[in-house]
Each structure stands twice: as C-alpha cells, then as structure tokens.
Amino acid sequence: MQAAENMALGKTQRGGPAAVMQSAAEANERAGFTSHSTATHIARDQGVTVSESTVADGNRIITEAIGDQVLAQYATPEVPTRASGAALGRDQSTIGEALEATALSAGDKAVDQRDAAAIYAAEARASATNEIKPGGIGSRAQSAATQNERTTFFSDKITISDVSGDATTKLSDDKPVTREDAEGIISPEIRNKPDMRTTPGGVASSMAAAARLNQSK
C-alpha cells in the first residue's frame, strides 16, 4: 500500500491507510503474530490500488483498495503543481487572508480538533521559523476546540470566525500560500476524520483556493 500511495500520490499519506497498516503490521510483528515477509493472499493475488479522479467542484477523490475491498475514499481540494514559493509575487493571497476567508465561508462552524489542527499548521507555515508562539491563533484554536468539547449548547461554542476573523493582524508572520502550504494544511484537517474529507469552506479548502488563485496570477 505504501508503494501504491507513493506511485499515485507522490508520498505516503500521514494517517492514511498505508500508515495505519504499517503501524498495525509492526505491532503484530512485535507481538509475534506475523513475520516481516508475510503477505495476505488478497494483496498478493488481487493487488493493491490507489486511484485518483477530479470532480466538478475541483476536489480530488482518492480511492485506496486491496482487491475489490475499498479501504478508504476521501476528497481533498485540488492544488496547483507548478508553483513554488520563489515564484510568488507580493500581490498573492496570503495564509492570513485565507484564514480570514474561512471566517466568512465557514465562520458559523464550531471549532473542533481538526479545524484547530489545520489552523495550527497554517500558523506554523506562515511563520518564518516554522514555530508557534504561545497565545497565537493556533493556540487559540486548540483552546477553543477543547472548550467546545465540554460545551453543550451550540450558542455557547467558539466558532471559526471567532478564532480566525482577524488572522492577518494576529499572525506574527505571513506569506503567500503555496502548493506545499496547502498540502501541509490539508493533511491535519482530514487526519482521523471518518470520511477523510475536508470541511466545505473550511481552512484546507480556503488554502487550496488561495494556492490556485496564486498560481493563476
């Protein structure tokens, strides 16, 4: 599965089927339940596949299967593949602006741990040192997600707009969104999500849209 993901996607997805299977295999091997060279007849005879398709809304649908059994099917926003940070000009959409766009497109959504992980990753990407300062927007998002888990009524929950509505002024650093940034922010948002789909209008989608916009300029 790792080889199939690398061939189709260019890398092994963090938290994806290959990573989960590798972790389980290592645990089983340590426990003596299997050996390193063991392979199931399904994988050996029917093969492992990772396929990708693009739908009308611009999302990529990734399907991973062993034989005819689908292990995972998830959607990620399509991001451009040509741009690099060095190619971006000063009139490009920044990470802070994309976070503020999220406050408009999904602002009423209560912050959960996946939103917090994406916002945290966005702040790290925006930072020149790739470090998070205490009290920053990422920390605010994580605190909001934790508080929301203990809050019963939706009206009392902290929303995305509460956290990211003023992102450009709260970030200590900012930078134009690149393909690498978008991909690095998509991963934590979909990780551990049952359907492995990004939130419509959420942080990952906004970053992917900003990366596409920057590519077109």
Rank of each mutant, 00 (worst) to 15 (best):
V111L: 02
T81S: 12
S53C: 10
T146G: 10
A103R: 08
S139P: 00
I185Q: 03
R179E: 11
I186V: 14
G89Q: 14
S139H: 01
D162Q: 14
S161H: 11
Q147I: 04
K133Q: 08
D91N: 15
R179F: 04
I137Y: 00
I137T: 06
P176N: 14
T63V: 03
Q46V: 04
S164F: 09
K133P: 02
I158Y: 06
D45S: 11
I160W: 04
K170P: 04
I119S: 03
E131L: 09
V48I: 15
E52R: 15
T94N: 12
Q142N: 07
Y74N: 02
T159H: 08
T102N: 06
R82C: 06
P188D: 02
R82W: 03
A117W: 08
A110E: 09
S105W: 02
L71H: 03
D162A: 10
G136P: 00
E123F: 00
Q142D: 07
I66S: 00
L171V: 04
A86D: 13
A86T: 15
L104W: 06
E100K: 05
R60Y: 06
S187A: 15
D112C: 14
V163F: 10
I66N: 00
A124D: 02
A128H: 09
G107L: 05
A43K: 03
T159D: 03
D91V: 12
I42F: 09
A43P: 02
A75S: 14
L71F: 02
A72K: 01
S155E: 15
S161M: 06
A83P: 00
S105G: 05
G165R: 05
I119F: 02
E183Y: 08
D91P: 05
L104P: 00
V163A: 10
V163Y: 12
A72P: 00
V55K: 13
T151W: 11
Q92S: 15
A167V: 03
G89K: 13
N130Y: 07
S139D: 04
T152V: 12
S187Y: 00
V79I: 14
I61N: 01
A122F: 08
I62L: 09
S53Q: 14
Y120W: 11
T49L: 04
R82G: 09
E97L: 11
L88S: 15
D162R: 11
L171G: 08
R114H: 15
A118K: 03
S127R: 00
S187D: 13
D108R: 12
A144N: 04
A122R: 02
S51I: 09
P188E: 09
I185Y: 01
Y120S: 05
A65W: 02
A167C: 05
D115I: 10
I137M: 03
A83T: 13
S105I: 04
R82S: 07
E123A: 07
